[in-house]
Each structure stands twice: as structure tokens, then as C-alpha cells.
Design a protein around this nucleic acid. Structure first.
Lengths: 281, 281
DNA sequence: TCAATTTTGTAGTAAAATTACAACTTTTAA
DNA sequence: TTAAAAGTTGTAATTTTACTACAAAATTGA
């Protein structure tokens, strides 16, 4: 079992040609299991018996048996581990690590999320007169994504990149309005100010942020996501993907609350995009 | 996927001999994957072509392909299943379903992604004079996110929401420039035009899109992600999260290629944000 | 009951994997 | 440094495995 790891582990012990084979398989295992020995030998630029010998070296009966093991290895549910990227990693390593750590982040987010809070926020959103989404830096794109989703619901929804516009917009908010503020750390000064302005105007402030943070403390409701970032990369990665998943959840809750007839409307919005697209032949 | 369940489900629809084959496989699937078509036919007391036809009936390419599917099906529990949201789902259900289907989407994306292509694109990006990221609709926020990441690298990077600005910017592109176009379906007309303009200016066009699509065909390099969307929701969800993970991967590859000294630079960018934030007490 | 359809098997063919062996490399010890 | 030994790799032939075409048998329905 775990033939892929076995290949990585034994890699140095392989001969020159066997390394070529290993590389091809590691690069695209999904492709490998659907190839014949001939095509794989071609890809690796070695002869067919070399591929066969490679398979035997990994304690399999031969090439077809090896493919079976590989297929199982690919399907088996590895619990995702948050493995940080290392500076010596090649493309195969960092690609897999990022996918895995992203999945791991989503899993922790799922476990940490407060479903009651989600339910209450969905409630508020369905009843809102106007919804605003604000975020800065990496969270700006999350806010923009939220705009894109909620815009389809035919609800008054607002998003600005510009902090001055954000302030002006918030100044005009009233009760019945919901302001959603997105920040991983919850320490972005200008968003905290927005929260204060919104609250003084009796708007509901929802934070997608850390619970115990300056921003979190200013919010009426906080949806927190305990997501660990790979701090070596100095970039927000997993956090904003978890935020997006949360946006998806809010949007889904919203449509479900609005009922079936409402989803017909969504379908229409989607169909209206047809003209801007090439049809499938 | 889940070929064993499929066999059980369709059992009644099978013919007499096919039922014999199904029975033998269900009785001892572990044995089945290690048998040749001849031995399996013997066990089921049918002819070899019958076994072959049985495999085809289950949407596989033939006997070896069937064994592959069976092997994957047998490999202990696929962790996350893409369970679509149901209109009777409560908050707990839809929250978990969205997290799970997002993780499932990332897993399929991970398996489908072409690492060699990633490596080549990272190469191109590190050598580019100017990098542009364009997307529309749901992919616009992905493009914006890419801007946010690559901006930190102190590389000339461009992003516009406005299609007119996108065109104007692309008109001025030259060789040495890389244009990254993001679209799930690959059928957005205006992006296809951008791709054509870019190519006629000898810029490299990278598509984060479906391989076999109008946009995909116009690109110099395509990074495709086989991600299944819950079409009942009429919203892009999993697809853009996979796209974001891919952006993370490209950004990571970029920093690794640039080496250690370069990452010091990233650290400085991050530290420069301090003033806009509340400090941790 | 007999024609039409479906199912199944036989025999031949094609493809894929494996084996045997020879040529080429690399290592090692004189 | 060199020549034998050990190890690695590829070519060609062989064997195994899977697939196709077609014909026979069984089933269905009028």
C-alpha cells in the first residue's frame, strides 16, 4: 500500500532509467494508470522492460499489478496533513503540498465553524434591505466574490475596493442593512472603523474574521475560521479559501431560505450569460 | 466512481450471464482485480467476451480499465464525496456538504492537474516582463487574487475588471509578456478575443480553463482543472476555489524559483502592512 | 410457430506484457 | 590503467491477455 510514497522514498536507490520512470509516474500518476507499458516507456524515454523491472522492484507482480496498486494508492483516503512547502521542493511536491494543506485547512475550518452563527447570519441576510461586503488586500477578492454571488439574488448588494468609498457607503447605512467585513487577522484598522461607523448607524455588522480580534469585538456577529497559514510563504492562502467556502455556505443558505421559486430566478440569471459565451458544439 | 455500488444497483438490469459475472465479482472483488479476463470468465462459467461486455456496460473502456475502477472502489473509503445540497437541508447539512464537496473538488483537481504544465508556466512567469491576469464574473475575483499575490513579488503585474481596459492593455503587450486568462467554461467570448490579440502580439497566453474549449484552444499553455460543479446551485463554487489553489501553486512555484533571498523581500512587504493594522497585545 | 431481437459463445486477431539474451556502463581490484 | 565482474539497459522473440467479427443459440412478441 501507499505505493506513491514508496516511490518517493526509494527514489535515490533507483537506477538512472528507473528514476526517469519514477519521475513520469510521480508527475502524473492519474495518467500513468491509464497508460500501457509502451506509452509509459515512451514518456520516460526508456524501454518497456525497464518499466517492467521498475514495477517488480516495488514488490508488484508486473506492470498491470503495479497499476492496480497505484490506482488504490490514489483512491485511498489519505487524511490531509498540513505539510509546509520546503524550499527544495520540486513542482510535484509543492503542488501536492498546497492542495493538501488547503484541504486540511478546509477540514479544520469545517470543524471550527459555528453553525448556529451561520444560521443567524443567513437569517439576517435574507431580511436585509442592503448588503455590503468589504475586505482589503487578500480579502478584497473574497468580498468581490461575495458580490458576484449575492448579485445574482437580485438583492441590493454593495462592494467597494476603495476605503473612502467603503466609508461613504457605510455612513449612509441604516438599520435593516447588513455590513459583512472580511479580514483574516481582524486587525485591519480601516475595517474596524467601518464596523464602528456601521454600528453607530444601527446596521448589523457581520465579521468573517478572528473572534478575539479588534474587528471581531466590534461586530454584532462573528463567523470565525480557525485556519493555520503557512507563515513561511508570507502570503494568505488557505485562509481566504476557507473564507470563500464560507461565502458559498452563506449564499447557499440564502437560496435555500428563499425557496424553490427563487432558484428558478438564479437559473434565469445563469442563462442570461449565454450570449456572452460560445455555445457547446 | 463507486463501481461496486453501481453493480449492485444495476444488477436487475443485467442479462443472465452478466448476472453470473456480477455475482462472482461481488462475492470476491479482491480476487477479481487480480484475475485475468480468462480466469474470471471461467469462474463465472461464461465466455470472455461476456465479461468484456459486462465491463463496457459499466462505462469502462474494457476489462483492464474495469479492474482499475474496481481497485479504486475497493481502496478504503474515499474520504470526501461530492454530495449535492438538497433543498430540505438544514444549516448543519448544507454547511458540511459544501465543505466536503469543496474538498472533494480539490482532490479531483489535484489528481487531474498536469504538473509538467505547471512547471513550464512557472518558468514563463519568472521570466516574464509583464504579467496580466484577466477573468470575468466569478473568475474576476480569482484574477484579482492573483494580482494581490504577484504584486508582492515586485513584478510588473496587471489586472483589470473592465473588458475595454483588458483589451487596451493586451493591445500593448509584446513578446516577453505573459497573459493569464481565467475562465471555468472557457467559453467567454471576450476572453477568447483577448487571447487572440495577445497571441498576435507574440505574448504568451496561459489559460486556467477547460482544455478542450474555445479559450483553451487559443492558449499557448492550458492549466485545466477537472472540477465538477453542483449544477443545481447555478453558481460557480468549487471551480473557482480550485482556480485559487492553482494561483497559490503558481505563486509558490514563483517564489521557490526566485530563491531564498527573494523571500526576504516578501517578508518586508508583509511587514510594511503593520502600520495599517492593530498590533497583537 | 416463426420472424425479429437480444444474448452468448467460438475462433481469429490485435495488443500488451514478459522473457531471454546481448550490448553497453560502471565499478573494482590488480 | 586496465581488464574482469557486476550491474544496467535495450532489442527481439515469445507468451499472455484482451478484443473483434461473426455465427449460433436463446428469448421475445405477434
Amino acid at each position: 500500500m501507499k505505493i506513491l510514497e514508496q516511490i518517493t522514498q526509494q527514489f535515490d536507490a533507483f537506477s538512472k532509467s528507473e528514476k526517469k520512470v519514477a519521475q513520469v509516474i510521480l508527475n502524473n500518476p492519474q495518467n500513468a494508470i491509464h497508460s500501457s507499458i509502451a506509452t509509459l516507456a515512451n514518456l520516460a524515454e526508456v524501454s518497456e522492460p525497464t518499466v517492467n523491472r521498475f514495477c517488480r522492484r516495488l514488490n508488484t507482480k508486473g506492470f498491470p499489478d503495479f497499476k492496480l496498486h497505484l490506482a488504490q494508492s490514489l483512491a485511498s483516503g489519505t487524511p490531509y496533513v498540513n505539510r509546509n512547502v520546503d524550499e527544495n521542493d520540486g513542482p510535484a511536491e509543492y503542488t501536492n503540498k498546497i492542495f493538501e494543506s488547503t484541504m486540511a485547512a478546509l477540514e479544520t475550518a469545517r470543524q471550527s465553524v459555528d453553525i448556529n452563527a451561520i444560521n443567524r447570519v443567513v437569517d439576517l441576510l435574507t431580511q436585509a434591505n442592503k448588503i455590503s461586503f468589504f475586505g482589503l488586500g487578500a480579502s478584497a477578492s473574497v468580498a468581490q466574490d461575495a458580490l458576484n454571488k449575492f448579485f445574482r439574488f437580485n438583492v441590493p448588494v454593495v462592494y467597494f475596493e476603495d476605503i473612502v468609498m467603503q466609508r461613504m457607503s457605510t455612513m449612509n447605512s441604516t438599520d435593516g442593512d447588513v455590513v459583512v467585513l472580511i479580514s483574516h487577522t481582524g486587525r485591519t484598522k480601516s475595517l474596524v472603523e467601518i464596523a464602528q461607523i456601521a454600528r453607530s448607524n444601527h446596521a448589523v455588522v457581520v465579521g468573517i474574521t478572528a473572534k478575539d480580534s479588534p474587528l471581531g469585538r466590534e461586530c454584532s456577529y462573528v463567523l470565525s475560521l480557525d485556519v493555520a497559514e503557512d507563515t513561511d510563504m508570507y502570503m494568505p492562502m488557505a485562509s481566504r479559501i476557507a473564507q470563500l467556502a464560507l461565502i458559498d455556505i452563506l449564499a447557499t443558505g440564502f437560496t435555500l431560505r428563499r425557496g424553490n421559486r427563487f432558484r428558478e430566478n438564479l437559473k434565469r440569471v445563469k442563462e442570461s450569460l449565454k450570449d456572452s459565451r460560445f455555445s457547446i458544439k
